[in-house]
Nucleic acid binder design. Structure first.
Lengths: 180, 180
DNA sequence: GTCTATAGATCGATAGAC
DNA sequence: GTCTATCGATCTATAGAC
């Protein structure tokens, strides 16, 4: 069985129960393998699996979501694109973000200062779009922080209430606000 | 030692490590008592403690935060008051919300449908203020959902990045938007 | 009420057969 | 590469002395 397939089977268990709630027994069951077989693929055990999945999530946010792509587009269209790609990242509010989950649990795989820098960097990407749209630097930073807050807050609400539409509606409102 | 004092000592351990990360050993250490002494006060063990703290949090949000108090005030002032009281609830972004934390971990003390109803009810309280301020029903619901998203999103970001000011700034922006 | 000591279950992780 | 069996540590919880 391929390692990336295994990781795809393992991710939902972490996303559902968090780092501490995802026991090796549960993880193994999610793959259909025995525990020992899982250790064959991931000698570092649970920490290794969680670390790989966490790095995958950060990498996806970094390279696929918070990127101001489409140089032909207006700043607002680029921001709207990032909202759309964040929606894809979290499967329209149906999947959760392991970065947020692990960070809240203070999981051993989390490097908290590095996470803080990552989110600051992503806010900066957003702020540059707002600046390109004519906002003053401080207003752009505020708008960027608000957007990240709203996206993650909506994702959290969708998870807490098991209503993915709460995320979709919020994402739509954000985009409408940009493209009105 | 008084039970409410004990609970005050126990809450931060759950808030820091989550339900699964807060072992009875850690909880006992936080109180200065031995494990057996903790079971004397809470025969139901960890689940009982977490349940009490969870109900405390919900009760505080219900009776102290999401209440449209001050009939003399304008709808916007009442909304601003709720933002202020949510800030008090989370200690200006320095403490986390156990409802959110336990819900994300699918902790055994969580009744997920009940939590979903609670947040829906709190959104309704906010929406009624927005309606009283002249918003149409659907717009009021949207504004209410946005406000809750932003508050919880900002609290989440503040926790993830260990920067409480991210919450304070967001709360301030929400209030400015209301009272401009 | 608080303690030490410990039971019994589950945890993460490993040995070794196949 | 997958398995059964098991280790040692940790977990929740309890027994019983003081």
């Amino acid at each position: 069985m391929d390692k990336s397939e295994l990781l795809a089977l393992l991710q939902p268990t972490f996303a559902t129960y968090g780092f501490n709630g995802a026991s090796v027994a549960r993880l193994a069951a999610a793959t259909g393998l025995g525990k020992a077989s899982l250790y064959h693929h991931f000698p570092g055990g649970k920490n290794e699996i969680a670390g790989v999945l966490l790095r995958q999530a950060v990498e996806q946010l970094q390279s696929k979501v918070f990127v101001a792509s489409g140089k032909r587009n207006s700043p607002n269209e680029r921001l709207a694109g990032m909202i759309d790609r964040f929606s894809e990242y979290c499967n329209d509010g149906q999947s959760y973000c392991l970065v947020a989950l692990f960070a809240q649990e203070q999981a051993p795989v989390i490097d908290q200062p590095a996470i803080a820098e990552q989110f600051a960097a992503w806010r900066t990407v957003l702020a540059q779009c707002y600046e390109a749209d004519g906002h003053k630097p401080k207003a752009a930073n505020r708008a960027a922080a608000s957007l990240v807050n709203t996206l993650y807050g909506a994702l959290l609400m969708a998870r807490m209430t098991d209503e993915p539409k709460l995320f979709l509606q919020a994402a739509k409102r954000c985009k409408n606000q940009l493209l009105n």
